[in-house]
């Protein structure tokens, strides 16, 4: 039986990726260096954990999907997931672009089969999927290319209302857990969820930064998720900015884990316009 060995929640934002690229050339922006330093322990933990597969629940930002057809939930089933061009060209600019994130279609089809047929999660299946900063912004902070394990990305609509409810995102995580445990391999699986913490990038509330809200979220995710799930999504948006709704994605990661997890690491900082946080959980071996 395959099993989930850990969970990681982490923020994403385009500038996080650009800051990394500049930093690798020795040009760290002062605002971003703490995030790099703060993610070093995560990189070490991930290397030690050495999962066989990663299931990553994320959201696209109109970089792969467009409004002709914007899925509420979608799963990537492909050998590789290249970077999406967000308008500035592939990263790092001027250097060889990051290699595509590898996929494992056998693993992804088995997961898809269980999620759709047993769990009634009617995912849109994408046999071609480019990933945007939702994945590529934080990935180089926590691993070196070539990327250490194949990934199965699950995309969630956070771009246009109606977005999925917090309860549904939590249920997705629980379904992912059962789907993994249903696999016949003995794979060790890491579940990652990513969404910006507090932020808003349009309107006169542009740049709103609520670090207390971000800390409150991280402090309660392990043992008090029901309170977070019950808070209306409009409250997260009101207090933390419209894009704070993306925190709901983190519920899928927490719900994929048991109540016996240890919190391995937590870090939070606010470099510029997106609350940046990371939290790592591990199942007892």
């Amino acid at each position: 039986m395959a099993r989930i060995v850990g969970g990681l929640g982490i923020s994403h934002t385009p500038s996080m990726g650009l800051a990394f690229d500049a930093g690798m050339k020795g040009e760290w922006e002062p605002a971003w260096k703490p995030w790099f330093d703060g993610t070093r322990p995560v990189k070490e933990w991930l290397a030690d954990l050495a999962p066989d597969h990663i299931v990553c629940v994320y959201n696209d930002h109109l970089n792969h999907f467009t409004f002709e057809a914007y899925p509420t939930f979608a799963i990537g089933v492909a050998d590789a997931f290249p970077q999406a061009d967000e308008g500035w060209g592939p990263r790092p600019a001027g250097g060889p672009p990051f290699p595509p994130v590898p996929g494992d279609t056998d693993f992804a089809w088995a997961l898809t089969e269980h999620l759709i047929r047993t769990e009634s999660f009617d995912l849109t299946v994408c046999q071609e999927l480019a990933l945007d900063h939702g994945v590529y912004s934080w990935l180089p902070y926590i691993a070196d290319a070539p990327w250490p394990a194949p990934m199965t990305p699950i995309a969630v609509n956070m771009i246009r209302h109606p977005i999925p409810t917090a309860q549904r995102l939590r249920d997705l995580g629980a379904a992912i857990r059962r789907a993994v445990e249903n696999l016949e391999s003995d794979a060790r699986v890491l579940v990652i969820a990513t969404g910006g913490m507090s932020h808003q990038i349009s309107g006169t509330r542009f740049g709103i930064a609520n670090e207390d809200l971000d800390r409150y979220f991280l402090a309660n995710l392990k043992d008090n998720m029901p309170a977070l799930v019950d808070l209306p999504q409009t409250e997260w948006m009101r207090l933390g900015g419209t894009e704070a709704a993306e925190l709901g994605i983190w519920f899928a990661m927490r719900a994929a884990l048991s109540d016996r997890i240890d919190e391995i690491y937590r870090y939070q900082v606010f470099p510029k316009i997106t609350g940046c946080g990371v939290i790592a959980f591990q199942e007892p071996s």
């Binding site: 409004f67 771009i159 246009r160 209302h161 109606p162 808003q200 349009s202 309107g203 006169t204 509330r205 542009f206 740049g207 709103i208 409009t234 948006m237 009101r238 207090l239 900015g241 419209t242």
Partner: peptide
Amino acid sequence: SPGFDLDEPGTYLYSGRAS
């Protein structure tokens, strides 16, 4: 300082109608 409401022009909530 940014306020705690979801009204325009502070916030343009992206709805189906806007889409």
